[in-house]
Simulated assay, not measured.
Amino acid sequence: MANNRNQATKAEVQRSSANKLPIPGEDETEFSAEEAAEVFEQNQSLNRASEEE
């Protein structure tokens, strides 16, 4: 069977990112209200500090 240059080899397919299993929680986009409040408070304190300068 001839190797067609237009096709990926088995090793190339196995190494591709599309062939990898997802890592649980890696693409998690949900966040809690507590996390949002913490980030908001941090941003507010940074804004106040920059305004005082």
Rank of each mutant, 00 (worst) to 15 (best):
39 V>E: 03
49 A>Q: 07
6 N>T: 03
50 S>M: 15
22 P>A: 07
42 Q>K: 13
33 A>C: 08
22 P>I: 00
1 M>N: 05
20 K>S: 11
42 Q>D: 15
42 Q>H: 14
31 F>T: 02
21 L>M: 09
43 N>T: 06
40 F>Q: 04
3 N>I: 08
53 E>M: 03
17 S>E: 12
9 T>L: 09
21 L>G: 07
19 N>S: 15
29 T>G: 05
23 I>S: 06
12 E>G: 06
49 A>L: 08
49 A>T: 04
19 N>W: 10
9 T>F: 07
4 N>W: 14
29 T>F: 04
7 Q>L: 13
12 E>F: 12
10 K>T: 08
37 A>L: 14
53 E>P: 02
33 A>L: 13
31 F>K: 02
13 V>W: 04
12 E>R: 00
23 I>L: 10
8 A>H: 01
47 N>D: 15
40 F>K: 01
42 Q>C: 11
27 D>N: 09
51 E>R: 13
17 S>Q: 09
1 M>V: 10
18 A>Q: 09
34 E>D: 14
48 R>Q: 15
12 E>L: 10
3 N>F: 10
2 A>T: 09
7 Q>E: 11
45 S>V: 14
26 E>V: 05
24 P>S: 09
31 F>A: 03
11 A>E: 11
8 A>C: 05
35 E>A: 07
44 Q>Y: 05
27 D>K: 00
45 S>R: 13
48 R>G: 10
50 S>Q: 14
50 S>H: 12
14 Q>K: 12
13 V>N: 01
47 N>P: 03
33 A>Q: 10
37 A>C: 08
5 R>Q: 09
33 A>Y: 01
44 Q>N: 10
12 E>D: 12
30 E>S: 14
49 A>N: 04
38 E>R: 09
35 E>I: 00
39 V>F: 03
23 I>M: 07
22 P>Q: 04
5 R>C: 08
48 R>K: 15
51 E>V: 07
23 I>Y: 09
1 M>I: 07
38 E>Y: 06
4 N>A: 14
47 N>H: 13
30 E>R: 09
6 N>G: 09
2 A>N: 09
21 L>H: 06
28 E>P: 01
13 V>M: 04
39 V>Y: 02
